[in-house]
Design a binder for these strands. Structure first.
Lengths: 220, 220
DNA sequence: TTGGTAAGTTAACGATGTTAATCTAAGTGT
DNA sequence: ACACTTAGATTAACATCGTTAACTTACCAA
């Protein structure tokens, strides 16, 4: 209670804070997210931690989903960075695909809450529709779009691989969808049923990548 | 209001209804589930449709999850039946695996709400723990267990295939996990992002099965 | 007739996301 | 120096949710 009231009392430095508040809220939400899990992350708890009232959050975020998605994008940026790194350093197309899948899977397993929110909860299209026509579909800062960007990267890598002479068994988009779905299924399973006696993680990841790299490139 | 009160008035045939009530509730829940979607399926709405008060549901189901899982098991029985049929009629191990995957994928796509509840929401182990020690883990009537049964069937089919001479690249459980995860990812993607411009469904399903059947059996 | 019991009711609790109405303090124009 | 606007927050409240507590009713058996 004292921490709360002092936060209120000391939080009244009005000038220029409008800038910072949004980041403060995201930071607090992230902490709670990690500390107490997604389930307990309620609007009021986030507001408490920031030191403001719950309705104040609605000055910065349209609704809870908007907040959470913004938070996810922040995290997903790290995955995009990792993909950038791979594209910059790896030349061989097949190895690129492998590394992509590996990075993707490990990112998902390491950030289960964010992964759930972006790839495992109700359709993002609906969420976008709910947000209204506020922004065009290609706005790179719209929350939730980082997930689509990651998938787009895979399509690009595969198209590029095909362009550089690799023979694929399906069109690049279809290949991307198949690969993504499979690795996505792996991540989803490990996240949603963590107590199930799965085989060794590395075996599963490597196995899945083996199977799909083999299954997608024409071998004759 | 009139429909409600008449339902109440005529619903007071007390004798022997205790037997029927549970099924009535499940039926009403199922209808609402299909009519208005999972989101709008609230305890009070289900109770309204049955013509009883909301707390009365707790005489037949421990909590909402218990009800929903019971409902899911009812639906999943159809998938188990389909698997029975496959095991009874198909001899060739590879074809069995294929048909299993096909049946599984199409079942998931056809029953998205139940699929979400069983395979796409928080871990079942937690749910089971929440239900208490009411029943042992191998009770075939415990709600939610049908999902695990389906997976168990796949393991059995693969082990059987190996026993009949087929060479696998991984242990049967690992093979089952890989196959299941991939098809699960496919179903999950189609369910959760229905508006995404995916490739043709049949192409995806067949492609995924091709890739995994090829990737799992040793070819040399 | 008298209990006892199974089935159901109403009232209420605590939480949740969210909205409406209001207040306040800082900046701005005159 | 004084009035006005406005961004940023507040308190109060709403509707809804799952769920529990306490009470009522109808039936059956002794």
């Amino acid at each position: 209670m004292s921490a709360f009231s002092t936060a209120i009392a000391s939080g009244r430095k009005r000038r220029g804070e409008g800038h910072t508040r949004r980041e403060e809220i995201l930071q607090a939400a992230k902490e709670l997210f990690l500390e107490e899990g997604y389930e307990s992350t309620t609007i009021r708890r986030i507001a408490d931690r920031v030191g403001i009232s719950a309705p104040a959050l609605y000055l910065y975020f349209r609704d809870k989903e908007d907040l959470l998605l913004a938070l996810c994008d922040q995290t997903f940026t790290h995955l995009v960075d990792a993909i950038d790194e791979i594209e910059r350093t790896i030349e061989d197309p097949l190895e690129r695909i492998r590394r992509f899948g590996d990075a993707y899977a490990r990112f998902g397993i390491t950030h289960p809450d964010e992964y759930r929110l972006v790839f495992l909860s109700g359709n993002i299209p609906e969420a976008i529709r709910k947000l209204g026509h506020r922004q065009a579909t290609d706005d790179p800062d719209r929350p939730g779009v980082k997930g689509a960007i990651v998938f787009g990267r895979l399509v690009a890598i595969l198209a590029q691989a095909e362009a550089s002479g690799l023979k694929l068994n399906y069109p690049p988009d279809t290949c991307a969808e198949l690969c993504w779905m499979a690795v996505h299924g792996l991540v989803a399973a490990l996240i949603l049923k963590p107590d199930f006696p799965w085989s060794d993680r590395d075996v599963l990841i490597n196995g899945m990548l083996d199977i799909h790299v083999k299954g997608i490139v024409r071998s004759e």
